[in-house]
Design a protein around this nucleic acid. Structure first.
Lengths: 197, 197, 197, 197
DNA sequence: GATGAATGAGTGTTCATTCAT
DNA sequence: CATGAATGAACACTCATTCAT
């Protein structure tokens, strides 16, 4: 039997969850610049000292919260993922999942966006996060090989099929955009026109 | 002819510029969350108290710096702007100017991006900033009227012709993308495919 | 038998007392206008941050200290208070207690006086403080009813039986006045002549 | 012709008066502790630097303002002063003048009270101020010699004929007391009963 | 005489973190 | 495991005052 004294601890899942949610809530409400460990602890209903039982330090708290969200998000995005179906349908499904996720977990998404654009993002190993979304990249490559998708730099493709959806879903940037089914399909149409050969 | 380079006790453009540049440098290096008035003042070579001669408070410093950059950026983007030329050429010119600007003023751009995604952005009157880029919106509308551009929600169009370029130019998100002339034209091709009818 | 004089990490009466005394000492020495949280903390031998464990902020520190003194003072003034004794004796006893208190706790009294005449006094609920001295007011009313004391506005009576003693005891105003037993009795004689019918 | 370069200066009486009034206004509104040279200068409509043309420093500003008020007050108090009239009438006239002064110059009085109870009062030569009121002291002595007034310590007498009137007139201490003619005469009655033989 | 600019020293307060309990 | 208490260091900001103009 292996016991991780330092990394596993007692797992009072209730407190862990409370801290996770408190972190997101506080950061979304007042931003990274003014968020503090004690405010988050108070929101979670625990002592600041207790927070340090679950997280090594403030950076660990913020980074872990981000990674947990990203993991959760990728799970939802890739739900029912079938790499052998029609390419267009695959990406369309991802768009829909994405909008679903954002509608139902807007606070998670908001946190992730804010984190990714803050200097804290430097503390994350990007490749680890990208790994979660690897299946999509593989499909993209397949589309190129099959001459369905334009054979251009990957960053360019990503810039047209992943980022616009994030922008549109971000109320900070697009207050007017309504995440209706029709709008989502329309938007996806542009994305597909952009990348398809 | 006598030229007073330094009119010692009169509001000092040199100091103002030093503060502007120091703000961008410090924020880019350590992020909004850990940037402080004293660090910025030290970088600018003035006393923290002096900073308050030029800016009302920290928020004013950060917001003013952002607005100044946006203004500067719009000036460059719209240089040689001819609303009566061919639509595709207009937008292509903007892409090129954008990449030029970012290449030559990467730190300005980086600051603006970080600012726009921080809670400080709430302090800015968005309409004022959007005003700088209004001519582009008008051209977009013209394209729709002339049935050259898809008749969809403005936010969707913006998400495909303005945001991808920002992503691609942002080294934070696209470390691999090379801002070569060829790459830029390729990328613009996708944007145009997305929005054109 | 083991006695823990200091229960190190439990809210510390010793520190509370040290802060109380330091506040009085510093304010008496340099006045409200130049007293600062850090000076008081240093005098108390704690970190400025520690002060905020015991008090919400500077105002709370100064106001609480004042109220504590007033409470203490009223306890002493009313010690052995017998509302059914002869009126003159009651008030004379208060005068004597007052002088005793001031002699033995001149710094407390000095602080209270300075506080009451500073703008900080606006932060105190006057009725709460007056409550401590209510028994005296009731006796005053009884004296009026029994036609022993002049039937005039309460403020006028207070101005002659409470304030002169404060003036006389205040070395700031009366450097020459010696708080000898004889002097105190003489002074009380005038107070009584003023209010008695 | 003598010219005092340092002490007399240009005498822009308008600015001098503006500073005098601004000092009183600001101090009365926000208290000594938070009053600052720049706030006072702004209220007076001059630059902080200009203030230093008229006053040596902050202390000088506050002290001079106090002394000017005291001088003004003594002038009014002793108006029509006749040391050879009946003693009771002399003091009664002073009471009336005092109330008049306070009614018409409540802000001056308020400033003086706050000043006298602040540590700044230590900067004033008390004897100089007392000199203004000397005639009253002489009359008091005459009353003692003529066996009209009790032969007790001067401080005691002052505590009963001067301080009660200040208390009663101070809205900070006596919010209920109405400065009507009747009330004033009643109050003076008590003062006289206190000191008369 | 009058002033806007400048600043070192200070303000009240919060920070992330540790530690004894 | 959980915590209230403690703190040095930092925070944003204001101070009284000086100085070149």
């Amino acid at each position: 039997m292996i016991v991780y004294f330092k990394t596993m601890r007692t797992r009072d899942d209730e407190k862990q969850t409370a801290l996770f949610k408190a972190t997101i809530k506080v950061v979304n409400e007042i931003g990274f610049a003014t968020s503090s460990v004690s405010k988050i602890a108070k929101e979670a209903g625990v002592s600041p000292a207790t927070l340090y039982v679950y997280y090594k330090n403030k950076d660990d708290l913020l980074v872990s919260t981000y990674i947990d969200i990203k993991q959760d998000m990728s799970r939802v995005l890739l739900a029912g993922f079938d790499p052998d179906g029609p390419l267009r349908d695959i990406f369309k499904q991802v768009w829909v999942h994405m909008f679903d996720y954002i509608s139902k977990n807007s606070s998670y998404f908001e946190y992730a966006e804010q984190f990714a654009n803050s200097p804290y993002s430097q503390l994350v190993d990007k490749r680890e996060v990208e790994k979660y979304f690897e299946p999509l990249i593989l499909v993209l490559q397949k589309g190129i090989d099959q001459k369905i998708i334009k054979d251009v730099n990957f960053d360019i493709l990503k810039a047209f099929i992943f980022y616009p959806v994030m922008m549109l879903a971000n109320p900070k940037h697009c207050q007017d955009f309504e995440t209706s089914q029709a709008n989502i399909e329309t938007a996806f149409g542009l994305a597909w026109d952009a990348i398809k050969l």
